[in-house]
Design a protein around this nucleic acid. Structure first.
Length: 443
RNA sequence: CGGGGCGUAGCGCAGCCUGGUAGCGCAUCUGCUUUGGGAGCAGAGGGUCGUUGGUUCGAAUCCAGCCGCCCCGACCA
């Protein structure tokens, strides 16, 4: 992409409403525009990142054996009356009436709908297990939206739903999502720690929040440092095998959000040098809820013994749009964003220091073509802005690498590669710089 | 939903207390000079002061309602 054709409205001054760093940087880098409280337009740069995050989430769901579908944003109120949640949900639910005076709602989640879909087609234990997901916009009319996209009213969410014969089988579905989430967040450049969450009236041990540690996190968390450093199981994990050891390894050590925190247990179970108390951002939540919806909504299957029983369900959410804020919270400096390569809106930023100079233009064009061919998705700053501004903008939008090309260096056939994360600069021949960027040698 | 605050040019703000027809910085446009880390000079354009009503000879300024937004708290992917 050429910057001259792109739409990148960067802000030198920070709009006053933004308090936390990810919100400020997203506004400054021209990634989002607020249209109403908690409702944002995704400008081209932000949209590119959003799509990359979404795609990684999708790939890891698919790898775990979940099946993608897409449910509508608008739902019939009658569906929610079946589960009793239409009245229970309160003003957080956005209610809409259509021209026929039918009650609709903009879905805050999809348990009812997926249960309705499942029950319409499934009759036998032979239809189980099933693991379905979609990635769709949700709306929750938060009393107080804040932190930009981290707590918006409209948000993009991946939600998966599992259907199993009994709790033991449901645990296997749960474990698949548990492992898939670890891989997902690792690919996104995040260290996510699973923390035991409140299971409410269901009870049991099958609910975890996935929390990333960040100074600006919304809630206080406590955990064992060894948990933070524990890697993900890896993309070669056999999701059809026994995943219990994977889960056990990550649930043996202490980790709790403040509402589940027990300081006596924390001190008893965790040596002082491993105790971490920090702030965290919830980016995922997995939950087994048994027959909470299948029973009132009559989603039953016939078991081998001939008896009909409600299916055991779980739901598994990832806040896709929220993740963008979380990633920036985890990866930024005073100059701007520092995108992990996996989600960077462009792979390399090429800075033409003297647009209009025939030789420099040509060198930039050649580098651009070569990097495009190598799949690096370069962004070429071909505008006639001053050098200082170009450097500042490139740092702000946080592309992992910058290739700086100007007439002064070109006289000796040289160009400069800057690694955004570390700030280190390499002066090399232009051909070398392009070749090394193409092969990912600076990673 | 309780408590607090703010709406004046695209963005950041001053002016309001003590009423007299609007200003600063950045951005934008023009010209010249500059040109390797957010340039300099000169000039120009841009605002029914959130909105409705009231008080007044006169309202950005005082009063009331409404709308929008932000912060702290309680609640949530």
């Amino acid at each position: 992409m050429r910057l001259s054709r792109f739409f990148l409205p960067v802000l030198k001054e920070v709009p006053g409403e933004a308090q936390i760093v990810s919100h400020r940087l997203m506004l400054r880098a021209g990634m989002i525009r607020q249209e109403a409280a908690g409702i944002y337009a995704w400008l081209p740069l932000g949209h590119r990142v959003l799509k990359k995050i979404e795609q990684i989430v999708r790939e890891e769901q698919d790898r775990a054996g979940a099946v993608e579908m897409l449910m509508p944003t608008l739902q019939l109120a009658d569906l929610w009356r079946e589960s009793g949640r239409y009245d229970a949900y309160g003003p957080e639910m956005l209610r809409i009436v259509d021209r026929h005076e039918r009650d609709l709602l903009y879905g805050p989640t999809n348990e009812e709908m997926i249960t309705e879909i499942f029950r319409a087609y499934s009759r036998s234990y032979k239809d189980l297990p099933k693991l379905l997901y979609h990635i769709q916009w949700k709306f929750r009319d938060e009393r107080r939206p804040r932190f930009g996209v981290m707590r918006g009213r409209e948000f993009l969410m991946k939600d998966a739903y599992s259907f199993d014969l009994d709790e033991a089988a449901a645990r296997m579905s749960y474990n698949k999502m548990f492992a898939a989430y670890l891989n997902t967040f690792q690919r996104l450049g995040l260290k996510a720690v699973p923390m035991r969450a409140d299971t409410g009236p269901i009870g049991g041990d099958l609910s975890h929040e996935f929390i990333i540690l960040a100074e600006t996190g919304e809630s206080e968390v406590f955990c064992d440092a060894r948990l933070v450093e524990m890697g993900a199981p890896g993309l070669d994990l056999d999701f059809d095998g026994d995943l219990q050891p994977v889960v056990d390894a990550r649930t043996a050590l202490y980790a709790a959000t403040d509402e589940m925190h027990d300081s006596a247990r924390f001190e008893a179970e965790t040596p002082a040098e491993h105790r971490v108390s920090a702030r965290g951002i919830e980016v995922g939540h997995i939950f087994y809820f048994g027959t909470k919806y299948s029973e009132p909504m009559k989603a039953v299957v016939t078991h081998p013994d001939g008896q009909d029983r409600p299916v055991h369900m779980g739901s598994y959410g990832v806040g896709v749009s929220r993740l963008m804020g979380a990633i920036i919270e985890a990866h930024h400096d005073e100059n701007g964003c520092i995108w992990p390569e996996s989600v960077a809106p462009f792979g390399v930023g090429i800075i033409n220091l003297k647009a209009g100079d025939a030789e420099t233009d040509q060198a930039c064009q050649d580098a651009y073509d070569a990097l495009t061919l190598a799949g690096k998705e370069p962004l070429l700053d071909d505008t006639d802005a001053r050098a200082g501004g170009k450097f500042a903008t490139m740092d702000l939008i946080g592309l992992p690498y910058q290739l700086v090309i100007g007439p002064r260096g070109l006289k000796e056939g040289k160009a400069e590669v800057k690694v955004r994360a570390t700030g280190e600069r390499h002066e090399l021949s232009l051909a070398d710089a392009v070749a090394r960027l193409a092969e990912g040698a600076f990673s």
